[in-house]
Design a protein around this nucleic acid. Structure first.
Length: 1022
RNA sequence: GCUCAAGUGGCGGAAUUGGUAGACGCGCUGGAUUCAAAAUCCAGUUUCUUCGGAAGUGUGGGUUCGAUUCCCACCUUGAGUACCA
């Protein structure tokens, strides 16, 4: 009986599928546990060995929890809408649905062969209409909701309408586009329906807003900012125009505070929480109004600023507005108009990128206008400067140069006074921004106060005079939700007189229409503009041909689609009840499963998916749809597995003209020299083994031994091999004596070569490479003295373009899924980035073979009913303890070591006892389920090992009677001594001091102190 | 610049509350087995060493009987972020 892993693995994968071993029930008396992997996007390239890392970890945990008696939900599905499939469709004309289905098939095959315990009966795909029906449904719910700041909760828009009808909006404290706009009930009731709808859009949690995009008519597409250089397209140099487009946005900003607070309640990694906190960007301060004086404006005009340092208000010596600020045109004086306009034009020309990249250049211009300080009533000059961002706060700042670095630099640059309002601080060289050490001075009623006190008082005083109030700002912006793409969820929206209307949820899903082309239309409409059947019939309630649009009963449908994060923002809830036709999931299912207990995935989603999905969850919680307002209790980021790229080396020479040449150098010669230079700067078809390049790189002026002599001899041979064709060319062009070749300073080049041709000893199979890759058809490979071509290796991200992708299919075929699973875990801590090195897999593979041999040999099963020895039991229980701790700490790498130690010990003990070997299988089964199932059934068990319960740890087997004490001198261990554990402190000290080795170590000195920690250590000081 | 994470043999890494640094595996060296190779098994493998020992966890300090572990400063690498008032 040998360990035939291919056969065993196929057998058990079939068994699990046929018996639905891992199907989770929505009704159970067992406690629930929900283990979730981040949604994969099924790319055309399939899986590489880095992808399954997190899946293996979550699978181990899921299997462990089953052994612990939990009802485990461990689903999998596909985030199947997305850009790559669409790009592929544009190139090949193949429908994205077709290529996506193919890719999913590959993914599924690859996942299946690794032996995951997924409940595939719950699979979802975001591109499936039965799924995106609910994406559209949530969108409609958001549209029909507004956010009440008093209750910190979303409510139905119809409740808001009721309030408007009865008492206007005076008593409404809502998150709203235009908070200052007020109306009475009479006014509201007098508005036309259209006017009312426009107002309501300002309150809805998803809304339409005009956004500027870069449109390139020649390319027929929208371009991102980084695809435009100097106003023309990066590719082809076509003109780009700015175009306003109406886009859907999500009012995620309403949830900023709750998204921030919620982080305190969930066990996610600190770094991930930190990025979300930064992204939300809460700052607490005050909004302050400054009255403006200028010949051109009425006294009533005022500028609002946001500041986090109202305590420094007496230090204001100027104000700065963003160049785009609305008031700039109004307040600029005629004398300054020219300068201001020129500056605005100059900054407008600079792309967003330039402006961000160039932080150091200080620029700005005076508007000629002044503001009045709210307390001192002094005049404050108003400047504009592009260091102030239009989009943050109010787009204006009160500049306090003594307390803010940027204000300081600006003031210095333009010679604006820098009044000091800090006590005992020198600000002649730099601004002072240390809040903790702040003592305010020179500031009237704030004098002598610290930051906290002064801030409170300043806000109070501002409120008294009606020129300011405490205010909190968030950096988090509303999320644009429209994409000009084909392969995404269509919006359940049609337009009447340009105003969006929701399709009734009863008619969902609105299915993605067929189009001829996946590109935007010639008029710049999104790809759905190509659809001929894409209009909504409000009477028949169905999608009809565009020809029928009459804007009476038949209206055009929305042409944008939803972004990638739409479908992935609630999939974890849908898994609870994926076939439900009436709800996202039934109440019973949600009440049972509640939320995700463990979520594993990459950290690249920190501020995208993981923030948006929290937002949707909170919204759905407000609406009473889901039972929890955070959907994942614990989240672990798996680290990336890096690839070991392989490189081949080429060399080249530098040419020089001979300076003191007696020969004249003709124009023709120059041309020929240039030709030679191009040809030999990098010699194209000659590749050098990495160790051979050292002979070229290193020279010995005076070789001192045989080795160095040999080195120089080899070098000479190589150089002449390289030089021969060059010398031939030189004589062919009659350039002798006119040109010289530098053989000491050569050029070295390295190129990625596919790791498929490189073995674990870094040797390149160049013969096969020449045959299979036409790039190398005529290449010459210079090998080392063992006739091997050695490649250089470097650790990089695994990617197709670096030719370093390792496919799990080959690994599974050669070593089996259990070896792959164990090895991925064995590589190192789950969260850490680590390089993949296929060579090391032999270690875990031979462990599995060794494990097998504990149970069976050539004569069959060798497990007996022998009574376990003390040592057997000690090994088993030590292993139980360690593995259980490891799994609970997600330290899977150390469990693999523990299994190896256990197998080594039991082999040495010649253990055959079933009482030991049977529970050992349960311990290993989460990690290597196939071999565990096989041996489990060989031992006579009929049910799957996944139904077995985890072995109980019994500490009594680990009790020892003596301890091998380390004896340290001044903290350094010098020798060990075996002593009984029940020996008293004094007796230990006595025994140790009596030992002759102690006397040797002391060399006559008297110990100053002896530290005895019973059961741990003895340390002698002296 | 700021924030976060991490620095231990040739390599991946271990040391869970401060208590024998280098577990386990790869690689390497030697040996057994074999016609040979693969596979398997055994022994060794941090560095230096006068073979007694000594030094040693990025660097420099500190706390402690004792520090990879705690504190301070710095260096390096990786990730995220970017004029956020």
């Amino acid at each position: 009986m040998t360990y035939n892993f291919n056969e065993i693995e196929a057998k058990w994968q079939k068994y699990w599928a046929e018996n639905q071993t891992f199907k989770a029930e929505n009704k159970s008396n067992k406690p629930k546990y929900y283990v979730l992997d981040m949604f994969p996007y099924p790319s055309g390239a399939g899986l590489h060995v880095g992808h399954p890392l997190g899946y293996i970890a979550s699978d181990i945990y899921a299997r462990y929890k089953r052994h612990q008696g939990f009802n485990v939900l461990h689903p999998q599905g596909y985030d199947s809408f997305g850009l790559p499939a669409e790009q592929y469709a544009i190139q090949t004309g193949q429908h994205p649905a077709v290529t996506t289905a193919e890719n999913i098939k590959t993914y599924r095959r690859q996942l299946d062969q690794i032996g995951f315990s997924f409940d595939w009966s719950r699979e979802v795909r975001t591109s499936d209409p039965n799924y995106y029906k609910w994406t559209q449904w949530i969108f409609i719910q958001l549209f029909e909701s507004w956010y009440c700041k008093d209750h910190e909760k979303a409510f139905a828009i119809k409740d808001l309408v009721n309030v408007f009808e009865e008492s206007g909006n005076a008593n409404i404290n809502a998150v709203c586009e235009n908070e200052s706009e007020t109306f009475t009930a009479e006014e509201w009731n007098g508005f036309t329906v259209e006017e009312q709808q426009k107002i309501l859009l300002q309150y809805r949690l998803t809304y339409l807003a005009e956004t500027e995009v870069n449109w390139c008519p020649a390319l027929g597409t929208v371009l991102a900012n980084d695809e435009i250089v100097n106003g023309v397209s990066e590719r082809g140099g076509h003109p780009v125009v700015r175009k306003k487009m109406t886009q859907w946005s999500m009012r995620i900003s309403a949830y900023a505070e709750r998204l921030l607070q919620g982080l305190e309640t969930i066990d996610w990694t600190d770094s991930l929480k930190e990025s979300q906190r930064n992204w939300i960007g809460k700052s607490v301060g005050a909004q302050v109004k400054f009255k403006v004086v200028s010949n051109e404006v009425k006294e009533a005009d005022e500028i609002e600023v946001f500041t986090t340092r109202p305590d420094t208000i007496f230090g204001v010596s100027f104000m700065t507005l963003a160049p785009e600020h609305d008031l700039v045109q109004q307040i600029t004086t005629p004398e300054q108009k020219e300068a201001v306009d020129a500056y605005i034009e100059a900054t407008a020309k600079r792309s967003e990128r330039d402006r961000m990249a160039d932080v150091k250049t200080i620029s700005g211009v005076f508007t000629g206008a002044y503001a009045i300080h709210p307390f001192t009533e002094k005049l404050i000059p108003i400047w504009i400067g592009d260091y102030v961002l239009a989009g943050y706060g109010t787009g204006a700042v009160m500049s306090v140069p003594c307390g803010d670095e940027r204000d300081y630099a600006f003031a210095k640059h333009f010679n604006i006074p820098i009044p000091n309002i800090f006590e005992g601080v020198d600000i002649s060289e730099e601004a002072f921004s240390d809040k903790a050490k702040t003592v305010i001075g020179n500031s009237d009623f704030l004098n002598g106060m610290n930051y906290k006190k002064a801030t409170k008082r300043a806000i109070y005083e501002l409120e008294q005079i009606g020129q300011g109030e405490g205010k909190t700002n968030y950096r988090l912006r509303d999320a644009v939700f429209s994409r000009q793409r084909y392969w995404g969820e269509p919006f359940p929206v049609y337009y009447v007189n340009g105003l969006p209307q929701m399709i009734d949820v009863a008619h969902l899903p609105i299915k993605l229409p067929e189009v001829e082309k996946y590109l935007p239309t010639e008029t710049g409409e999104p790809p759905l503009g190509n659809a001929s059947v894409w209009a909504w019939d409000t009477e028949k309630n169905e999608v009809v041909s565009n020809d029928l649009i009459d804007n009476e009963t038949i209206h055009p449908l929305e042409l944008n689609t939803m972004p990638g994060w739409a479908g992935s923002s609630f999939y974890f809830m849908r898994y609870m009840d994926p076939d439900n036709q009436n709800e996202i999931a039934s109440k019973e299912a949600m009440d049972y499963w509640q939320d995700v207990d463990l979520y594993i995935g990459g950290s690249e989603h920190a501020t995208g998916h993981l923030l948006y999905s929290r937002f949707w969850q909170k919204f759905l919680f407000d609406k009473g749809v889901v039972p929890k307002d955070e959907y994942a209790k614990k989240l672990i980021n798996q680290g990336m597995i890096l690839g070991e790229s392989a490189f081949v080396h080429r060399v080249g020479f530098n040419f020089g003209k001979v300076v003191d040449s007696k020969n004249d150098i003709s124009k023709e010669d120059v041309k020929n020299i240039t030709y030679l230079r191009d040809k030999y700067t990098i010699i194209k078809d000659m590749y050098f083994s990495n160790d051979v390049t050292t002979y070229l790189r290193k020279t010995f002026n005076k070789p001192e031994n045989d080795e160095e002599l040999e080195h120089m001899q080899l070098r000479e041979n190589l150089i002449s091999h390289l030089l021969n064709p060059i010398l031939e060319d030189i004589s062919k062009f009659n350039l002798e004596g006119k040109v010289m070749v530098n053989t000491m300073m050569m050029n070295y080049f390295k190129t990625h070569v596919s790791v498929d041709y490189v073995n674990t000893k870094n040797e390149l199979d160049w013969e096969r490479l020449k045959l299979e890759d036409k790039q190398y058809k005529n290449a010459e490979f210079i090998t080392n003295k063992d006739n091997k071509y050695v490649c250089k290796r470097e650790v990089e991200k695994m990617s197709k373009s670096k030719y370093n992708v390792v496919n799990p299919d080959n690994i599974v075929e050669d070593y089996g899924a259990d070896s792959l699973r164990l090895y991925e875990m064995f590589l190192g801590p789950l969260e850490q980035y680590k390089p993949w090195n296929t060579a090391g897999i032999t270690g875990v593979h031979s462990f599995l073979k060794k494990l097998w041999k504990l149970y069976a040999d050539d004569n069959g099963l060798k497990v007996t009913d022998a009574t376990p020895t003390k040592d057997n039991l000690k090994t088993l229980h030590k292993t139980i303890k360690k593995v259980q701790e490891d799994i609970e700490n997600f330290s899977f790498n150390t469990s693999v070591s523990t299994f190896m130690i256990a197998a080594n010990e039991l082999t040495a003990q010649k253990c055959t006892s079933k009482d030991i070997l049977e529970p050992l299988l349960v311990l290993i089964s989460p990690y290597a389920p196939h071999i565990a199932e096989e041996l489990w059934s060989q031992l006579g068990n009929n049910a799957s090992i996944s139904t077995a319960s985890f072995p109980e740890f019994d500490a009594s087997h680990l009790v020892e009677s003596s301890k091998n004490y380390p004896i340290s001198f001044n903290g350094k261990m010098r020798f060990t001594m075996e002593l009984p554990l029940d020996m008293s402190k004094d007796a230990i000290e006595e025994a140790v001091l009596a030992n002759e080795k102690t006397q040797e170590q002391l060399a006559g000195r008297t110990p100053k102190k002896v530290i005895v920690v019973p059961g741990k250590i003895v340390n002698i000081v002296g």
